[in-house]
Amino acid sequence: MRKSKLSTIVFYICVAIFMIIIVFPFYWQIITSLKPPEQLWDIPPGWWPSRFYLGSYIAAFTQRPFLTYLKNSAIVAISTTAFAVFVTSFAGYALARLHFKGKNAILALALSVSMFPGIAIVSPLFLMMKQWNLLNSYVGLILTYTTITIPLSMWNLTTFFRTIPADMEEAAKVDGASPFYTFIRIILPLAAPGIFTTAILVFIAAWNEFLFALTFNTKDALRTVPVGIAMFPGEYTLPWGDISAASVVVVLPLIIMVLLFQQRIVSGLTAGAVKG
Protein backbone atom coordinates (compact mmCIF):
# COMPACT_ATOMS: atom_id res chain seq x y z
CA MET A 1 0.00 0.00 0.00
CA ARG A 2 1.41 3.33 -1.05
CA LYS A 3 0.95 6.47 0.93
CA SER A 4 -0.09 9.56 -0.94
CA LYS A 5 2.38 12.39 -1.17
CA LEU A 6 0.09 14.72 0.76
CA SER A 7 -0.21 12.46 3.79
CA THR A 8 3.57 12.06 3.85
CA ILE A 9 3.96 15.83 3.93
CA VAL A 10 1.37 16.19 6.70
CA PHE A 11 3.16 13.46 8.65
CA TYR A 12 6.54 15.19 8.41
CA ILE A 13 4.95 18.49 9.44
CA CYS A 14 3.63 16.79 12.58
CA VAL A 15 7.09 15.38 13.32
CA ALA A 16 8.62 18.82 12.77
CA ILE A 17 6.14 20.50 15.14
CA PHE A 18 6.90 17.98 17.88
CA MET A 19 10.62 18.42 17.40
CA ILE A 20 10.40 22.21 17.44
CA ILE A 21 8.41 22.18 20.68
CA ILE A 22 10.88 19.79 22.31
CA VAL A 23 13.98 21.65 21.16
CA PHE A 24 12.81 25.26 21.43
CA PRO A 25 13.36 25.77 25.20
CA PHE A 26 16.93 24.50 24.78
CA TYR A 27 17.50 26.80 21.83
CA TRP A 28 16.21 29.72 23.88
CA GLN A 29 18.43 28.83 26.83
CA ILE A 30 21.51 28.61 24.64
CA ILE A 31 20.99 31.93 22.86
CA THR A 32 20.15 33.62 26.18
CA SER A 33 23.42 32.35 27.61
CA LEU A 34 25.31 33.86 24.65
CA LYS A 35 23.56 37.25 24.59
CA PRO A 36 25.58 40.26 25.70
CA PRO A 37 24.25 42.01 28.84
CA GLU A 38 22.82 44.95 26.89
CA GLN A 39 20.70 42.65 24.74
CA LEU A 40 19.31 40.52 27.59
CA TRP A 41 16.65 43.05 28.52
CA ASP A 42 15.45 43.92 25.01
CA ILE A 43 11.70 44.14 24.43
CA PRO A 44 10.75 42.26 22.30
CA PRO A 45 13.48 39.68 23.01
CA GLY A 46 16.01 39.05 20.24
CA TRP A 47 15.93 35.60 18.64
CA TRP A 48 19.68 35.60 17.95
CA PRO A 49 22.58 37.07 19.96
CA SER A 50 23.59 40.49 18.59
CA ARG A 51 27.15 39.38 19.29
CA PHE A 52 28.46 36.20 20.88
CA TYR A 53 29.31 36.94 24.48
CA LEU A 54 30.95 34.38 26.78
CA GLY A 55 30.86 36.57 29.88
CA SER A 56 27.87 34.72 31.36
CA TYR A 57 29.79 31.43 31.27
CA ILE A 58 32.83 33.04 32.86
CA ALA A 59 30.64 34.63 35.53
CA ALA A 60 28.86 31.34 36.30
CA PHE A 61 32.19 29.69 37.03
CA THR A 62 34.12 32.52 38.64
CA GLN A 63 31.67 34.85 40.39
CA ARG A 64 29.30 32.10 41.45
CA PRO A 65 30.08 28.78 43.17
CA PHE A 66 28.82 26.82 40.19
CA LEU A 67 31.95 24.69 39.98
CA THR A 68 31.42 23.71 43.61
CA TYR A 69 27.82 22.64 42.84
CA LEU A 70 29.09 20.52 39.96
CA LYS A 71 31.71 18.92 42.17
CA ASN A 72 29.15 18.18 44.91
CA SER A 73 26.69 16.70 42.46
CA ALA A 74 29.37 14.56 40.85
CA ILE A 75 30.58 13.18 44.20
CA VAL A 76 27.06 12.43 45.42
CA ALA A 77 25.71 10.98 42.17
CA ILE A 78 28.77 8.81 41.41
CA SER A 79 28.97 7.42 44.95
CA THR A 80 25.23 6.74 44.97
CA THR A 81 25.48 4.90 41.67
CA ALA A 82 28.39 2.81 42.91
CA PHE A 83 26.71 1.88 46.20
CA ALA A 84 23.24 1.26 44.82
CA VAL A 85 24.48 -0.91 41.98
CA PHE A 86 26.88 -2.81 44.22
CA VAL A 87 24.28 -3.56 46.87
CA THR A 88 21.53 -4.47 44.40
CA SER A 89 23.73 -6.69 42.24
CA PHE A 90 23.93 -9.05 45.19
CA ALA A 91 20.27 -8.67 46.05
CA GLY A 92 19.15 -8.98 42.42
CA TYR A 93 21.16 -12.16 41.90
CA ALA A 94 19.83 -13.74 45.06
CA LEU A 95 16.26 -12.82 44.17
CA ALA A 96 16.60 -14.13 40.63
CA ARG A 97 18.47 -17.34 41.29
CA LEU A 98 18.75 -18.54 44.86
CA HIS A 99 15.98 -20.32 46.72
CA PHE A 100 14.86 -18.84 49.98
CA LYS A 101 11.59 -17.82 51.58
CA GLY A 102 10.12 -14.34 51.31
CA LYS A 103 11.52 -13.34 47.92
CA ASN A 104 8.19 -12.08 46.63
CA ALA A 105 7.60 -10.18 49.85
CA ILE A 106 10.98 -8.44 49.43
CA LEU A 107 10.22 -7.48 45.82
CA ALA A 108 6.76 -6.23 46.78
CA LEU A 109 8.25 -4.20 49.62
CA ALA A 110 10.76 -2.61 47.23
CA LEU A 111 8.01 -1.79 44.75
CA SER A 112 5.88 -0.10 47.38
CA VAL A 113 8.88 1.85 48.68
CA SER A 114 9.49 3.14 45.14
CA MET A 115 6.04 4.73 45.33
CA PHE A 116 6.72 6.51 48.63
CA PRO A 117 6.52 10.26 48.25
CA GLY A 118 9.81 11.82 49.41
CA ILE A 119 7.91 14.32 51.52
CA ALA A 120 6.50 11.46 53.62
CA ILE A 121 9.95 10.57 54.95
CA VAL A 122 11.79 13.89 54.80
CA SER A 123 10.99 15.15 58.32
CA PRO A 124 12.18 12.10 60.29
CA LEU A 125 15.18 11.69 57.98
CA PHE A 126 16.09 15.32 58.62
CA LEU A 127 15.98 14.69 62.38
CA MET A 128 18.02 11.47 61.97
CA MET A 129 20.65 13.20 59.87
CA LYS A 130 20.79 16.04 62.40
CA GLN A 131 21.32 13.55 65.20
CA TRP A 132 24.08 11.74 63.28
CA ASN A 133 25.71 15.05 62.27
CA LEU A 134 25.08 14.28 58.62
CA LEU A 135 23.33 17.50 57.65
CA ASN A 136 25.48 19.48 55.23
CA SER A 137 27.49 16.42 54.29
CA TYR A 138 27.89 14.13 51.32
CA VAL A 139 27.26 10.98 53.34
CA GLY A 140 23.72 11.97 54.34
CA LEU A 141 22.66 12.51 50.76
CA ILE A 142 24.47 9.42 49.45
CA LEU A 143 22.79 7.24 52.08
CA THR A 144 19.36 8.65 51.23
CA TYR A 145 19.82 8.50 47.46
CA THR A 146 21.17 4.96 47.60
CA THR A 147 18.06 3.91 49.48
CA ILE A 148 15.56 5.64 47.22
CA THR A 149 17.20 4.21 44.10
CA ILE A 150 17.49 0.65 45.48
CA PRO A 151 13.94 -0.40 44.49
CA LEU A 152 14.34 0.57 40.83
CA SER A 153 17.84 -0.87 40.70
CA MET A 154 16.84 -4.10 42.43
CA TRP A 155 13.89 -4.71 40.10
CA ASN A 156 15.91 -3.98 36.99
CA LEU A 157 18.77 -6.25 37.99
CA THR A 158 16.52 -9.08 39.18
CA THR A 159 14.75 -9.01 35.81
CA PHE A 160 18.08 -8.93 34.05
CA PHE A 161 19.67 -11.79 36.00
CA ARG A 162 16.64 -13.91 35.18
CA THR A 163 17.37 -13.54 31.45
CA ILE A 164 20.84 -15.05 31.80
CA PRO A 165 20.65 -18.74 30.82
CA ALA A 166 20.88 -21.05 33.81
CA ASP A 167 23.15 -23.57 31.98
CA MET A 168 26.17 -21.45 32.82
CA GLU A 169 25.61 -21.82 36.52
CA GLU A 170 24.68 -25.47 36.25
CA ALA A 171 27.97 -26.12 34.52
CA ALA A 172 29.89 -24.22 37.19
CA LYS A 173 28.00 -26.10 39.88
CA VAL A 174 28.88 -29.43 38.36
CA ASP A 175 32.50 -28.32 38.44
CA GLY A 176 32.09 -27.78 42.17
CA ALA A 177 32.11 -23.97 42.27
CA SER A 178 30.31 -22.29 45.15
CA PRO A 179 27.29 -20.08 44.32
CA PHE A 180 29.25 -17.03 45.44
CA TYR A 181 32.18 -17.87 43.15
CA THR A 182 29.75 -18.53 40.31
CA PHE A 183 28.14 -15.16 40.91
CA ILE A 184 31.39 -13.17 40.92
CA ARG A 185 33.21 -14.96 38.10
CA ILE A 186 30.47 -16.07 35.75
CA ILE A 187 27.23 -14.17 36.26
CA LEU A 188 28.53 -10.70 36.97
CA PRO A 189 30.52 -10.38 33.74
CA LEU A 190 27.51 -11.64 31.75
CA ALA A 191 25.29 -9.13 33.51
CA ALA A 192 27.53 -6.16 32.68
CA PRO A 193 25.13 -4.63 30.12
CA GLY A 194 22.19 -4.77 32.54
CA ILE A 195 24.32 -3.35 35.34
CA PHE A 196 25.45 -0.53 33.11
CA THR A 197 21.87 0.36 32.12
CA THR A 198 20.83 0.36 35.76
CA ALA A 199 23.81 2.52 36.66
CA ILE A 200 22.78 5.17 34.11
CA LEU A 201 19.24 5.31 35.49
CA VAL A 202 20.45 5.55 39.09
CA PHE A 203 22.97 8.23 38.17
CA ILE A 204 20.33 10.41 36.47
CA ALA A 205 17.95 10.00 39.42
CA ALA A 206 20.67 10.98 41.91
CA TRP A 207 21.95 13.85 39.77
CA ASN A 208 18.47 15.38 39.47
CA GLU A 209 17.12 14.88 43.02
CA PHE A 210 15.91 18.07 44.66
CA LEU A 211 13.87 17.76 47.87
CA PHE A 212 16.45 16.01 50.07
CA ALA A 213 19.33 18.05 48.66
CA LEU A 214 17.39 21.24 49.40
CA THR A 215 16.53 20.33 52.97
CA PHE A 216 19.67 18.46 54.12
CA ASN A 217 22.43 20.57 52.59
CA THR A 218 21.63 24.20 53.25
CA LYS A 219 25.21 25.50 53.19
CA ASP A 220 26.10 26.94 49.82
CA ALA A 221 29.41 25.03 49.74
CA LEU A 222 27.53 21.71 49.88
CA ARG A 223 24.66 22.42 47.51
CA THR A 224 24.13 20.21 44.49
CA VAL A 225 23.44 21.47 40.96
CA PRO A 226 19.59 21.29 40.99
CA VAL A 227 19.47 23.26 44.26
CA GLY A 228 22.18 25.66 43.11
CA ILE A 229 20.24 26.45 39.94
CA ALA A 230 16.96 26.85 41.85
CA MET A 231 18.64 29.22 44.31
CA PHE A 232 20.43 31.30 41.67
CA PRO A 233 17.61 33.77 41.22
CA GLY A 234 17.28 34.25 44.95
CA GLU A 235 19.21 37.50 44.83
CA TYR A 236 18.09 41.03 44.07
CA THR A 237 18.69 41.15 40.35
CA LEU A 238 17.81 38.23 38.14
CA PRO A 239 21.07 37.08 36.55
CA TRP A 240 19.37 35.38 33.60
CA GLY A 241 22.53 35.25 31.51
CA ASP A 242 24.44 33.45 34.26
CA ILE A 243 21.56 31.09 35.04
CA SER A 244 21.23 30.21 31.37
CA ALA A 245 24.95 29.60 31.01
CA ALA A 246 24.94 27.39 34.11
CA SER A 247 21.96 25.37 32.87
CA VAL A 248 23.57 24.86 29.47
CA VAL A 249 26.64 23.47 31.22
CA VAL A 250 24.48 21.10 33.30
CA VAL A 251 22.34 20.00 30.40
CA LEU A 252 25.09 19.32 27.84
CA PRO A 253 26.63 16.25 29.52
CA LEU A 254 23.14 14.84 30.08
CA ILE A 255 22.27 15.34 26.41
CA ILE A 256 25.48 13.62 25.33
CA MET A 257 24.82 10.77 27.74
CA VAL A 258 21.26 10.37 26.49
CA LEU A 259 22.33 10.38 22.84
CA LEU A 260 25.08 7.83 23.45
CA PHE A 261 23.09 5.45 25.62
CA GLN A 262 19.61 6.11 24.26
CA GLN A 263 18.73 2.50 23.59
CA ARG A 264 19.94 1.23 26.94
CA ILE A 265 18.04 3.91 28.82
CA VAL A 266 14.83 3.20 26.93
CA SER A 267 15.15 -0.54 27.42
CA GLY A 268 15.86 -0.06 31.12
CA LEU A 269 12.88 2.24 31.55
CA THR A 270 10.43 0.19 29.57
CA ALA A 271 11.42 -3.28 30.78
CA GLY A 272 9.18 -3.00 33.81
CA ALA A 273 6.34 -1.17 32.12
CA VAL A 274 5.87 -3.58 29.24
CA LYS A 275 6.16 -6.75 31.26
CA GLY A 276 3.79 -5.26 33.82
Binding site: P25, N208, F210, P226, V251, V258
Partner: peptide, 17 residues
Protein backbone atom coordinates in the same frame (compact mmCIF):
# COMPACT_ATOMS: atom_id res chain seq x y z
CA UNK B 1 14.57 11.55 26.05
CA UNK B 2 16.35 14.83 26.66
CA UNK B 3 13.57 16.72 28.50
CA UNK B 4 13.11 13.67 30.72
CA UNK B 5 16.82 13.47 31.57
CA UNK B 6 17.45 17.05 32.71
CA UNK B 7 16.84 18.20 36.29
CA UNK B 8 13.33 19.61 36.82
CA UNK B 9 14.77 22.75 38.40
CA UNK B 10 16.67 23.40 35.17
CA UNK B 11 13.64 22.92 32.91
CA UNK B 12 11.54 25.01 35.31
CA UNK B 13 14.13 27.80 35.15
CA UNK B 14 14.06 27.67 31.36
CA UNK B 15 10.27 27.96 31.32
CA UNK B 16 10.27 30.68 33.96
CA UNK B 17 12.36 32.89 31.71
Amino acid sequence: LVPWAIPTTVSATMWKF
